[in-house]
Simulated scan of single mutants.
Amino acid sequence: MDRITLTGLTATGYHGVFDHERRDGQPFVVDVVLELPVDTRSDDLATTVDYGAVARDVEDVVTGEPRNLIETVAGEIAERCLAHGRVERVTVTVHKPSAPLSQTFTDVAVTISRSRHV
């Protein structure tokens, strides 16, 4: 299976369980790996997936309805990615680099994989 990868898509969202997260928002960073058969002999966008449309879908979910969990955000992104007809499998990582932790950390992230055949 071939892959198209979008790395570091960043948008402000209002996800989290705390009031200040939903009020103030914070950056979320998303990585998406789309697995699909790519016809490399064709030079037609219809034979692949429009990664610009995928990026807009990711941004719409991140900036959209607030969710308590980034697991839910990742799931919604995965569902939208699978709606692009040629995508067979998707792996989504949602990073929450400003998560409300008192410990020193670099990142908090959730990674999920979904397939249209499961």
Results as ranks from 00 to 15, higher is better:
M1F: 06
M1I: 08
M1D: 09
M1C: 09
M1E: 05
D2K: 03
R3L: 12
I4M: 08
T5M: 13
T5W: 12
G8R: 14
G8I: 13
L9S: 04
L9M: 09
T10V: 15
A11S: 14
A11C: 10
T12V: 10
T12S: 13
T12Y: 09
Y14A: 08
H15I: 13
G16D: 06
G16N: 10
V17C: 11
F18T: 03
F18W: 11
D19N: 11
H20L: 02
E21D: 09
E21T: 04
E21F: 13
R23D: 13
Q26C: 01
P27D: 07
V29Q: 07
V30N: 04
V33T: 10
L34R: 01
L34S: 01
E35Q: 11
L36W: 04
L36V: 01
P37R: 08
D39T: 01
D39N: 00
T40E: 00
T40W: 01
R41W: 05
S42P: 00
D43L: 07
D43A: 12
L45C: 04
L45A: 14
A46M: 03
A46F: 02
T47P: 02
T47V: 01
T47D: 03
T48S: 09
V49L: 01
D50E: 14
D50I: 02
Y51C: 06
Y51F: 11
G52Q: 14
A55L: 10
A55G: 13
R56I: 08
R56V: 14
R56A: 15
R56D: 15
V58T: 03
V58N: 07
D60C: 05
V61N: 03
V62M: 08
V62Q: 10
T63E: 15
T63I: 03
E65Q: 13
P66H: 11
P66L: 04
L69R: 01
I70P: 06
E71Q: 15
T72Y: 07
T72L: 06
V73N: 11
I77W: 08
I77Y: 00
I77A: 05
A78L: 02
R80V: 08
C81A: 10
A83N: 07
H84F: 05
V87P: 07
R89I: 00
R89S: 05
V90T: 00
T91D: 05
T91P: 08
V92H: 02
V92E: 02
T93E: 12
V94E: 07
H95A: 11
K96M: 10
K96H: 03
S98A: 15
A99Y: 07
A99R: 10
A99N: 06
S102C: 04
F105L: 11
V108C: 14
V108H: 09
V110R: 01
V110H: 12
T111S: 15
T111E: 14
T111Q: 15
I112K: 03
I112E: 00
I112Y: 01
I112S: 10
S113M: 06
R114S: 12
R116Q: 05
R116H: 07
H117A: 15
